[in-house]
Amino acid sequence: MNASTVIFYVLGSLVLIFGAMTVFSQKIFRAAVYLLFSLISVAGLYLLWDMDFIAALQIIIYVGGIVVLIIFSIFLTQRSGEKLPPPIKKRLVWSGILTISGLGLTSWIVYNYLFSASTLPGVEPTVHNIGEQMLSYSKYGYVFPFEVINILLLAALVGSIVIAMKKKEIKPTDETTHITK
C-alpha cells in the first residue's frame, strides 16, 4: 500500500461522506456546501490521476459555476435559513428501496462490464492540442457536441431574455398625467 493508494481512499471516502451529508443534511445551505466539498474531492481524484486539465475544468464548471449558482438560488428562496421538515416515513422507505436498487443495478453493470485498457497514446493538454481536439471533425473530434452545446446555450440565452423582458407599459392618459403632476 503506497502513498497514492492511501490518498485515493482518503479522497474517495471524502467524496462519499460529503455526498451522504449533502443528502441527509436538513439545512439546505449546508447541503450545498457539502456538495461543494464533494465536488472538490472529485477534482482531487483527477489531480491524483495526473489529469490536471480535467481537474481544473471540474473546479471551474462544477465548483465555480454550478455550486455558486445553487447557493445563489438558495439565497433567493424564502425562509431558507430554517431547518427542512423531516421527511415522511412512507416516502423515506420507498426512496430508500429505489436508491438501493439503483445502486445495485449500477454496480452490477459496472462489475460485469469488461474495461479494456486504452491503447491510444495520452494527449498532452497544451493549448494547441485542446484547440485542435475541440474543433476537429475526425474520429475523436468534438466539433459536433461543441456546436450542439452552442445551440443549447443560445436557446437558453434567448429564453432568459424573453422571460426577463418587460412588457410595454400602457401609457397613462393625459388626464391622469395631469393629476400626478
Binding site: 481544473a56 471551474i60 465548483v63 459555476g65 439565497f75
Partner: peptide, 28 residues
Amino acid sequence: DTNIGILFITAISSMGVIGILMAGWSSN
C-alpha cells in the same frame, strides 16, 4: 510546473467567492 498553470489559477479564483458567500450567509 504544470502545463495548465493559468487555467488552474482561473479555476481557483472562481472558487474564491465561496468563502465570502459562506461568511455572509452564516452570520445571520
